Simulated scan of single mutants.
Amino acid sequence: MSSRPAPSPTSAPQGALRERKRVRTRRAIRKAAYELFDQYGYEATRVDQIAEVAEVSASTVFRYFPTKEDIVLAGEENPVLEAALRARPEHETPLAALRGALHEAMRTEYATPEARDEVFRRMRLISSVPTLRSRLPETMALTSDYLARALADRTGHPPDGLELRVFVGAVVGGYREAMLYWSDQGMHEDLKDVIDRALDVLENDLAV
Rank of each mutant, 00 (worst) to 15 (best):
F120S: 10
G75W: 01
V53M: 07
T10R: 13
D117L: 13
T67H: 05
E203S: 12
E138L: 11
P13N: 10
L164C: 07
A33W: 11
A198F: 05
R99Q: 10
L81S: 03
H188P: 02
A32E: 01
S3C: 10
A83C: 06
I50E: 00
F65G: 00
S183M: 02
P66G: 04
D145Q: 12
G169N: 06
Y175Q: 02
Y146E: 07
Q185T: 13
V168P: 00
V201Y: 11
A148R: 15
E114T: 13
D184T: 07
R4Y: 08
A54S: 05
D160P: 02
R122K: 15
T131S: 15
R24T: 09
E92K: 13
L136M: 15
A6E: 15
L136R: 14
T108K: 14
E114W: 04
A83L: 10
T67Y: 04
A32F: 06
A28K: 09
S8M: 02
M1W: 08
T45L: 04
P130T: 10
A51C: 00
S11L: 15
Y175D: 00
N204Q: 13
D190Y: 05
P9T: 09
M123D: 05
L164G: 04
V72N: 03
T93N: 03
D153K: 12
L125S: 01
T155A: 04
E138I: 03
S134F: 07
A54T: 01
D48A: 08
F62D: 01
D145Y: 09
P9M: 12
G173V: 03
R86Q: 14
R99W: 06
G174L: 08
A150M: 05
R133K: 15
Q39M: 09
R176M: 13
S8C: 11
L147W: 09
L202D: 05
P113R: 08
R154H: 07
V201P: 02
A33H: 08
A105H: 03
